[in-house]
Design a protein around this nucleic acid. Structure first.
Lengths: 344, 344
DNA sequence: CTGTTAGCGCGTTCAG
DNA sequence: CTGAACGCGCTAACAG
């Protein structure tokens, strides 16, 4: 490893002069500058950001802690984060927690040690420990995608409740009366909020909420399959399934196909989270789509703004709208013709 | 920020004692250890990894430089990388280059400054500059997915040529004689290698290679659409399209559907790269699938092994096999019944 | 078992 | 315009 002093020796100046050349600070004589630049090139010198960070207490590194980068929603969020960070000269460390509080904790301590300037956190749980941990250590954080209970922090997420409400409303307007929801863990705010929105729509429509139509599981394809099968065994069976995330939707779709159900003729299927257009051959699923890329981008911009101006300011919550995209997987139930749909 | 010295003061010992407690080095008296641990807990002390890294010249951080995390192939690779790194106590910084040499260079210099311990590189081009840059600075690197010309380095990739050969062979065995390939940029080794394999299969079958059946473009959905349209306008038109990556396959599929072609009755479509099962509702596309997760994992293990034992050793190339998965998108061309397929 | 000294690479402060 | 000294937080080496 070549250090600033070696460059200095080679250019026959002091280390300080080299430093000044590197940072364009103060005035340097033409000759000195040229010699320094030559030495840097010859030695392939690269300044050590560790030493720099140690002095300035700034690493120009952010962290993105999410549950699973493999979920295309988070992949897209990640891309938004990386682009925004990159534009500002920051790098991003990313960590998967797989919804595990243990992994989340391990990741956060490692990140704290590494002195990341800020954290974008998709909390594994809606409990506040993770957030508290970061706040106690004065590490700026933006909560992404999910809510945390009883606490205030900068946050960027979608209106899960509203999106679920509108999606349910769409089904109701098409004539469905028995709608089952397949959602994630009760510990995850998006899973819960989507049920809340779904129930509000049912309430408004004067439909008694049947608890057995609310299925809690995991945000995975396998869980979606299981929950769909369970829901279809109920009597009377639902005429529509509401999958609370993309993986669940795909699992439910598989279960429906395996069970020989026609979609949407026999059972309608709607989902939360769209799949990116580049990834899907036939857009088919009716969904509430979240602006994943923008969420990552905005969250990062918010975080960077906090770093730039650490003056205490009230926490900011950015709640982004979902977009209802109607496709072929939903339609009126057997024997019903759709009522005029509400604008969604 | 609380430092080791503050902990020391509070525990009424020296900084060194605190350090020893933290690292379980040497023997510490019960009392001292307890006081130190109490002080650490009270202060919420977190050791500064920057300072540690500055001394040890090791950051426990790797970098993953790829073209686009949004491509599910790379997403899966990334997950494999992160899992393997995480198991070994490493974090990973990820960077997108979008196939741009400029972005790639910027990323690499930033990473060099940050003293990452190693880099997993999906080179934007098959030219060696990026690799040379890293090697000159003695930064261990594993080349992922793509080849770089005229140089030797640790590498993990798939047998693109062989996979393409077998996929083409499959089409030939089904009776196709006019097969067009839609591939990426000529600067990208995987794009080229897949054409090579395709041509080898044609050669072996005694079919004259028609240059106009080889289309170079980009590894994007849009480019796939354009190339498919072009290919279908040829006369005589191909009876099968070979998409050299997943995005191209989806673009080609769209073009075929838009053009009213039946798949596979009128035109067969095969692709390179499978989509992860959790992301696809109806697996339909016949593909050469690469073990993306394992590639990321193995590459990371190889990199970590180099870090653990820096003794110079001959570069190691891990060429992983592709798996041909036959689905409904391919079949014999009109008027042909398939010949007995070769084992693939 | 514990403390002191010194230095990792860099940049600010203060003299030349 | 340039250089010397100091310290960011941590720990190896060497006392005690």
């Amino acid at each position: 490893m070549t250090t600033i002093r070696e460059v200095a020796k080679r250019a026959d100046v002091s280390a300080m002069t080299v430093s000044r050349v590197l940072n364009n600070s103060a005035h340097i004589s033409r000759k000195a500058r040229q010699r320094v630049e030559a030495a840097i090139a010859e030695l392939g010198y690269v300044p050590n950001a560790l030493a720099r960070s140690l002095r300035f207490k700034q690493t120009n590194t952010l962290a993105l802690v999410l549950t699973d980068i493999t979920n295309p929603f988070f992949t897209t969020v990640a891309r938004g984060v990386e682009d925004a960070a990159s534009d500002a000269g920051f790098n991003v460390i990313f960590c998967n927690t797989d919804e595990s509080e243990g992994e989340q904790r391990e990741n956060l301590t490692a990140l704290a040690r590494k002195q990341v300037d800020g954290v974008l956190l998709v909390p594994a749980r809606s409990t506040p420990e993770a957030l508290v941990y970061l706040q106690e250590r004065h590490i700026p954080v933006v909560i992404l995608d999910r809510r945390i209970e009883h606490c205030s922090a900068d946050a960027v997420r979608c209106d899960s409740e509203g999106g679920a409400y509108r999606l349910t409303r769409l089904l109701l307007d098409q004539g469905h009366r028995r709608i089952a929801i397949l959602t994630g863990s009760e510990n995850v705010s998006t899973a819960v909020d989507r049920v809340t929105g779904y129930r509000r729509a049912l309430d408004e429509a004067g439909i008694a909420v049947d608890q057995s139509y609310s299925n809690y599981g995991e945000f995975t394809q396998a869980s979606g399959e299981v929950m769909a099968r369970q829901a279809l065994r109920l009597s009377p069976p639902p005429t529509a399934l509401f999958a609370a995330n993309n993986f669940i939707a795909i699992g439910a779709y598989r279960a429906l196909r395996a069970g020989g159900y026609q979609i949407p003729e026999q059972v309608s299927l709607v989902g939360f989270d769209d799949l990116p257009p580049a990834l899907v051959m036939d857009p088919f699923l009716t969904v509430a789509a979240q602006p994943a890329y923008e969420m990552g981008q905005k969250a990062t911009e918010l975080l960077l703004a906090r770093l730039a101006d650490p003056a205490p300011a009230p926490p900011q919550e950015l709640i982004m709208p979902t977009e209802i995209i109607v496709r072929q997987s939903s339609g009126p139930p057997v024997g019903h013709s759709a009522t005029k749909p509400t604008i969604v």
